[in-house]
Design a protein around this nucleic acid. Structure first.
Length: 328
DNA sequence: AAGATCTTCAACCGCTTAGAA
DNA sequence: CTTCTAAGCGGTTGAAGATCT
């Protein structure tokens, strides 16, 4: 019964995919780099509609896993690896593709600054996004910007540009978008049956984590407490300096000068301790009905106020790249 | 209009890791 | 403990579409 229902859903989704995507819907054979004989009768290259259909049907009935035997039993002339990849990156019901939102971009930049090319780990924090898509996004978009600035994507210059310029600008744009959205709705937002309370957390790190920059470092943590389905606090921490400085035990004294209004509250969380499902970023924090409060602090930029010139960036190419970045 | 070049992203490859035998 | 197999991960490729000249 359940599998039947799932199969119906999958077929609806299947039809939708083939009506909108460039992958061939033809069941005719696609060009392959090697003959099937050379591959031991195995096919390579783009999947056909028929193959997708078979895979979807088989998984709807038998479930996923044991990919090699699944491929055989489903009558697919593909490796188990290929089937797994096709399912996870394309056919899975909850997979989201295209239109990476500003919030997702911010999340990717932030998590990449922390974890580097750990695409799978990053993807866990972006519901519905695959490691492959994030990796492609990074290569095609982010690296393009580095190229525009004539610097290496791993260079300090580029990382600082992201941290001090693009990420704050992304936040501004997210804020602006949400302000617009919020103005057309009620002030108090609800998700499901629960209410949402959020605060922006803004503080200077204590000195012992901060010796290289003095008091110039700053951290912003978006804090959301959700009722309804979640029933847990959801915290989206954002650091625009050294990610290692996430402080799991930050007590009130570690927050130094509080400059946020009295109705905001303090909380600190180590993102490593968060389960992916707890970081319902795109579905909650940044939904149009969400409340994405943010305080911007440009002290750190002041600290590096000569970076842009000394680093060889002219204001012209910085803004040109920024336009490119935000008008994707 | 047509060829050249660029961009995107699905898919593959090789390596590593996990866990069962 | 070792070996084997499946799954997962990150880097890379190449076809197809988009854009430029």
């Amino acid at each position: 019964m359940l599998s039947l229902h799932l199969r119906e859903l999958r077929m609806m989704d299947f039809k939708a995919r083939y009506s909108t995507h460039k992958i061939t819907g033809s069941s005719s054979s696609t060009t392959t780099t090697q003959s099937e004989e050379e591959m031991g009768g195995l096919r390579r290259g783009p999947w056909t509609a028929e193959e997708d259909f078979n895979l979807i049907n088989y998984i709807a009935t038998h479930g996923e896993g044991r990919w090699n035997s699944l491929a055989r039993c489903a009558g697919l002339k593909r490796t188990g690896k290929s089937c797994r990849l096709r399912w996870l990156n394309y056919l899975r019901p909850d997979v989201r593709r295209g239109n990476i939102t500003l919030e997702e971009q911010l999340m990717i930049l932030e998590l990449h600054s922390r974890w580097g090319n750990r695409w799978s780990k990053i993807a866990q924090h972006l519901p519905g996004r695959t490691d492959n898509e994030i990796k492609n996004y990074w290569r095609t978009r982010v690296q393009k910007h580095a190229k525009q600035l004539k610097c290496d994507v791993n260079s300090k210059q580029f990382k600082d540009t992201m941290r001090y310029l693009w990420m704050p600008r992304l936040i501004e744009r997210i804020q602006a978008a949400n302000t617009t959205a919020a103005s057309s709705t009620t002030a108090a937002c609800t998700i499901g049956s629960g209410t949402t309370t959020e605060a922006t957390h803004h503080h200077h790190l204590n000195d012992n984590t901060n010796t290289d920059v003095g008091s110039g470092q700053w951290v912003v943590a978006h804090v959301g407490v959700f009722g309804g389905d979640f029933g847990v606090a959801q915290v989206i921490p954002t650091t625009y300096n050294t990610p290692e400085t996430w402080n799991t035990a930050a007590s009130s004294e570690s927050f130094g000068t509080h400059i946020w209004p009295n109705d905001h509250f303090s909380l600190s969380v180590n993102p490593d301790n968060l389960q992916p499902e707890q970081v319902g970023y795109s579905e909650s924090m940044i939904s149009p009905s969400g409340y994405f409060n943010q305080v911007l602090d440009f002290q750190a930029m002041e600290h590096d106020n000569n970076l842009w010139v000394e680093g060889g960036y002219t204001s012209d190419n910085l803004w040109k790249v920024e336009d490119m970045w935000f008008n994707m």
